[in-house]
Simulated assay, not measured.
Amino acid sequence: MKSLLLPMPGNEPLADALAALDAGEAGRVCWRRFPDGEGLLRIEADVGGRAVDIICTLADPDPKLVPLLFAAMTARELGATRVRLVAPYLAYMRQDIRFQPGEAVSARLFARILSDHFDALVTIDPHLHRIHCLSEVYGIPATVLGAAPLLGAWVAAHVPDAILIGPDSESAQWVSAVAAHAGVPHAVLEKTRHGDHAVDIALEGLPPMAGRTPVLVDDIISSGGTMLTLAAGLERLGHGKPACLAVHALFPEAVADRLRAATCHLVATDSVPHPCARMSVAPLIAAHLKQEAQT
């Protein structure tokens, strides 16, 4: 029997795309909010005896967490044989150490919460830095899928003369993988962060770029400060407007407007629903779910 795909509100298009690719059978989850702010969840499918995949990308995670946990717990109470989380974007990976006294190490706490309520996790390119593998913090099987083939194919089709540029050492893993799939060169720069929005990027490390179109690549764009600083620096050096690619687009529309003005292309996957999403992660996830179902 196919797994039952239960999308949390807002994730229905991905669940329907997965079902169309024969990766499961799509159901529905209803979340109703009462005037006092509490919510009521209802699973609109028979989960008894079924393996369940709850689909929920975790951008803006705080308001999503209670409904998500209610869905997992309810599915289990109603007889689901397995409850797995499919979260194309996995939140709370950046705060992986205690930077200041008294701070929560959010990455570990969030991992503990999800591990207590799900049997397994599937995600795409989580922001791994000091945590090198999800198994270091998650107590359940956690599968990481890579979006590099999607980004590489986009670059090869739209910017064949590209040179890929990562803004810092954290981006190196994604930039090198995308460059390999696109068959183009790449470079990684050094960044100094002064806050949530202010950064300095050393451009001295740029290789010769004559005849190449710079393509900025990172796993996450949220405030846009890094990409805007890098784009401005490249334009000052006479390299023109770069393209800008991300796996996960977390930035608001106001930032998107500034990025569009500073770049020739602004593209991301649809791991997070976003106006700049041009690459579907559904085939990537569907291939994994179907492979897992056969084992």
Rank of each mutant, 00 (worst) to 15 (best):
P67Y: 04
T74L: 15
A104D: 10
P101V: 03
A104M: 15
G79Q: 13
E38F: 05
Q100E: 14
L65V: 03
T74M: 15
D96T: 10
P67S: 11
A75V: 02
A75C: 12
V86C: 04
L65P: 00
P63T: 00
P35F: 09
I97G: 03
D62A: 11
A51L: 03
T81V: 12
D60I: 08
V86W: 01
R98F: 03
E38V: 05
A91T: 00
A72N: 04
E38C: 05
R76C: 12
L58H: 00
V66G: 04
E38R: 10
I55M: 06
E103Q: 14
D62T: 09
L58M: 10
A91Y: 00
P67M: 07
A104R: 14
Q95S: 08
L68P: 01
G102L: 08
M93V: 09
P63F: 06
C56R: 00
I43A: 08
A59Q: 12
G79I: 12
G102H: 07
L78Y: 06
I97T: 14
A80C: 08
A75L: 11
G102T: 08
R76A: 10
M93R: 04
V52Q: 04
L69A: 06
R98H: 09
Y89M: 09
L85I: 07
G39M: 00
R50V: 07
D96V: 10
P35M: 15
P63A: 01
G102K: 09
G48S: 15
P61V: 14
V83I: 05
